[in-house]
Design a protein around this nucleic acid. Structure first.
Length: 510
RNA sequence: GGGGCCGUAGCUCAGCGGUAGAGCAAGGGACUUUUAAUCCUUUGGUCCAGGGUUCGAAUCCCUGCGGCCCCA
């Protein structure tokens, strides 16, 4: 029977003896087996690192195409696919591959007779994780599986490393993040989640661009870490011999552009905060900040709703959504509720009475001694009200003292025209009617509230910014949205590390 | 900062005082319709690191490193 000069077994003929003799670990044995097949490919005159391979159709396209075919027909149209081998089933002179590309998976059948004596030896050199191109007829196998019946096989790339468990994939959270490429290949829904992130960011840009906003790129290296309350990453510029910090917010440069007449500007960019790491915090994360001349914080509420609704659509998130076990309605308009009213509702205190607020705070273990009343109030709010805000809620009209960049209400200087949007107890957006009075801004930069550390304070004197305001910044609304948190909400991720491709990590010990 | 859980083969995990196990992967063999293919067979380990307790430690204790979670 086995009279042909190609072996029935699609296996390399060389012996593995010398390769495994010096190996002390499974890893090196596994690698040796793969390198042997790589050498075998080279012997066959095949480039194990591949070449251009044109005119491929996606797996999703093929599936759609096959859906309209007679399942008995194994002789459909000729198609070309390329992808990574995720599964390999060897049935002697017949080998089934499960190939994956970005759009999905499809089965490929390689028969010894069908591919011919030129190609069959290549089949013996295939390992899980290799990348191949296939041309063949599209159809269904005997068991009904959509299958490309290969007439030719083009080797595209050898994988030297062993892939993770073909069923469980990578489970260890650490490995999944360090080797995100493997997580993307093997993790259930991982690729889809990051594609959704891209779509969300696209949608955010689209909404803003449609409204004639200009996207700009501000500096990431700052001399003053302004625009937010956070500890910056500090570094040093050698040529200028001066300290530099990484930006913690986008705000102050965008406002300079309002002075410059750009009128509607935004930046979608990375900011850096040298603070704790948690399921909701990564040291670098992505912020949207948008500023609209002649608007106010109400303008920004409308914009926020438009952005979130568009982002949800782009991500395929239903309006009745569930996140972290909580039901959320993403239907606009969102609820709007006054800060003081919420505080009174949840804590029972009188928000206009300093003593009442302080008593409520003390009762919950919040330190009140020597601290500014508005600082105590905002801590009480964080500790009590935030977690109750499940459906999207614009919390409006903040205590002015904790809002040094915000315009005060016209006849109520103790109230700032600010809102924060909360969903599932998480702050998603923050917006102001922007303060454009340079004298008041300068004064507020000087005022360090009692009971706040430097890191917790937004009050950092920025004379260059004050100078810009003195030239006249139009009245404006400004908005910040935490893009990572938005993506978490819309993709159902419970950790920021699941929606940042490469979250911060200690280097792996060698 | 405080507390809890975890770290064993390339991957996924079991073992929790008597000296290392399974599945997948890998090597050899059978199979032209499999699909987490199946069947036979073989190989593979500083049990995170260091110290301690013990006749004996992957297992108990301490310290450190790394990870995850909860709280502040």
């Amino acid at each position: 029977m086995a009279s042909s000069d190609t072996p029935d077994r699609p296996a390399p003929t060389s012996s593995p003896d010398q390769a495994s003799s010096d190996s002390r670990s499974t890893a090196s044995t596994l690698e040796a087996a793969r390198r042997e097949k790589l050498a075998k490919l080279e012997e066959l005159g095949i480039d194990p690192w591949g070449q251009r391979f044109d005119d491929v159709q996606s797996m999703a396209e093929l599936r759609a195409q096959a859906a309209g075919m007679d399942p008995a027909d194994q002789e459909g149209p000729t198609v070309r696919v390329a992808g990574r081998i995720l599964l390999l089933r060897n049935a002697g002179r017949l080998v089934f591959l499960t190939l994956a590309d970005r759009s999905g998976r499809i089965q490929v059948m390689l028969g010894k007779k069908q591919v011919g004596p030129e190609v069959w030896p290549i089949v013996g050199c295939l390992d899980l994780g290799d990348i191949v191109g296939v041309e063949g007829r599209l159809g269904h196998s005997n068991s009904g599986e959509i299958t490309v019946f290969a007439s030719s096989l083009t080797f595209l790339t050898k994988s030297i490393e062993t892939p993770p468990d073909k069923y469980h994939g990578l489970v260890d959270a650490d490995l999944r993040q360090r080797m995100r490429y493997l997580d993307l290949i093997h993790g259930e829904g991982v690729l889809e989640r990051f594609v959704a992130r891209t779509r969300i960011v696209d949608a955010v840009r689209r909404v803003l661009n449609e409204r004639r906003y200009l996207e700009i790129e501000g500096p990431t290296l700052h001399t003053i870490a302004g625009g937010a309350a956070a500890r910056p990453f500090a570094t040093h510029h050698n040529a200028l011999d001066m300290p530099i910090v990484m930006r913690i917010a986008l705000e102050l440069h965008l406002k300079r552009l309002l002075v410059g007449g750009m009128e509607r500007v935004y930046e979608l960019g990375r900011v850096y905060r040298n603070e704790g790491i948690s399921p909701r915090h990564n040291p670098e994360f992505t912020m949207l900040e948008a500023y609209e001349a002649y608007g106010n914080y109400e303008t920004m509420m409308d914009l926020t709703e438009a952005i979130i609704v568009a982002a949800a659509q782009a991500a395929g998130t239903p309006e009745q959504h569930e996140w972290m076990g909580k039901k959320v309605s993403l239907t606009a308009p969102f609820r709007r509720a006054r800060y003081d009213e919420l505080l009174a509702e949840v804590t029972g205190c009188d928000p206009t009475d300093v003593a009442s607020v302080a008593a409520a705070a003390s009762a919950r273990g919040i330190d009140t001694a020597g601290r500014h009343p508005d600082v105590i109030k905002s801590e009480l709010f964080e500790a009590t009200v935030e977690e109750t805000l499940i459906n999207p809620t614009f919390v409006i009209d903040y205590p002015a003292a904790v809002c040094p960049l915000t315009k005060r209400k016209r006849n109520q200087p103790e109230i700032a025209e600010r809102f924060e949007l909360y969903v599932c107890g998480m702050e998603l957006a923050n917006a102001y009617t922007e303060l454009n009075d340079p004298d008041l801004q300068e004064e507020l930069f000087r005022t360090q509230l009692a009971g706040l550390d430097d890191d917790e304070s937004m009050a950092r004197m920025d004379n260059d910014f004050i100078k810009a305001l003195r030239h006249g910044m139009p009245p404006a609304g400004g908005l910040g949205i935490g893009i990572d948190r938005l993506v978490m909400l819309l993709t159902g991720a419970s950790s920021i590390r699941d929606i940042i491709l490469f979250p911060i990590h200690r280097p792996q010990a060698e």
